[in-house]
Write a protein that binds this DNA or RNA. Structure first.
Lengths: 152, 152
DNA sequence: GAGCCTCTTGACTGGATCGGTCGCGACCTT
DNA sequence: AAGGTCGCGACCGATCCAGTCAAGAGGCTC
């Protein structure tokens, strides 16, 4: 299950992606536009800044903005930062592998085989979807061309 | 992330599936074979019984056994019983749908679009994999015919 | 029916995580 | 130097996770 942190982060990033190249956006603006508790959002944006996703500027005319183009920021990366590994089990994680204490033979663990499939399918979707992708999908729906969302 | 509950449940069910048709198996046996805390496993098996997955017999010669054939018990069903919905967000769940409080228009929510893909991919794998499937995959690995596990 | 075996049930725990909130800085711009 | 903005540490209540404990209820065998 996606935490609210990740969900809020993605919502906020979508706002910043839409505004990309047009200067900083206030935390308060983002919070209000997306209905996110302001103080909680501060925490989230700070973390994203520390991980290099965002940049910030203090003082008047300050705020947050994306550190790179929206097409270079993947959903998977954001979720890994805020929620940790995507894999349903540590023993199938690529970014945070840990073997199961009680498994004699990992290779012949049926659960692992299935969960590896799940991890791969999930990671494939999340890592190949960028903020820009999401924006254009939303755009496609809004302008009534829903069929585009299946063309990817 | 899969909880230990679900993981233990699947491990236990694999044992019971292997033993299917050969009478009840003791909780203690399952616990020992799979390295699961006994008391904790009791809880899990009881829940699975209450949900109709397992049956039990008390007294000497008693124990737990599957309520139906291993090929009729899906991984997805087990995980839903113990961990709740598979969907990463309530607003894309088929079995426990709930709309997002702060979403104005659900259809044009980019996050929802992506998470729906994730849900569908995950559910497809989990719901189409049965205990019998897992058993035969494990068998394939054990007998050295790993390539079979990709043929499905 | 005694005694043992096995599941059943409810209460309890310690620790972690989630989803926030508060207050005071630090820093930047004008 | 004033006011706007992010930065950061502390704190909080609720909930969930993983597991334990003690007692009991039902069934079997002798």
């Amino acid at each position: 299950m996606l935490s609210k942190k990740s969900k809020y982060a993605l919502k906020a990033l979508m706002v910043l992606a839409k505004e990309y190249g047009q200067g900083p956006v206030l935390i308060s603006d983002v919070a209000q536009r997306e209905g996110i508790p302001r103080k909680f959002l501060e925490l989230i944006l700070l973390e994203l800044k520390n991980q290099g996703i965002l940049q910030s500027k203090k003082g008047k005319g300050g705020g947050y903005f994306l550190g790179r183009e929206p097409r270079l920021i993947s959903v998977g990366h954001i979720i890994r930062i805020l929620d940790g590994p995507i894999a349903p089990l540590p023993c199938v994680s690529k970014t945070a592998y840990m073997r199961c204490r009680e498994c004699r033979d990992e290779r012949s663990c049926g659960i692992r085989i299935v969960m590896k499939e799940v991890r791969d399918a999930t990671a494939k979707i999340m890592d190949s979807t960028s903020l820009a992708d999401m924006l254009s999908r939303v755009e496609a729906v809004v302008t009534g061309k829903e069929s585009l969302s299946f063309a990817i």
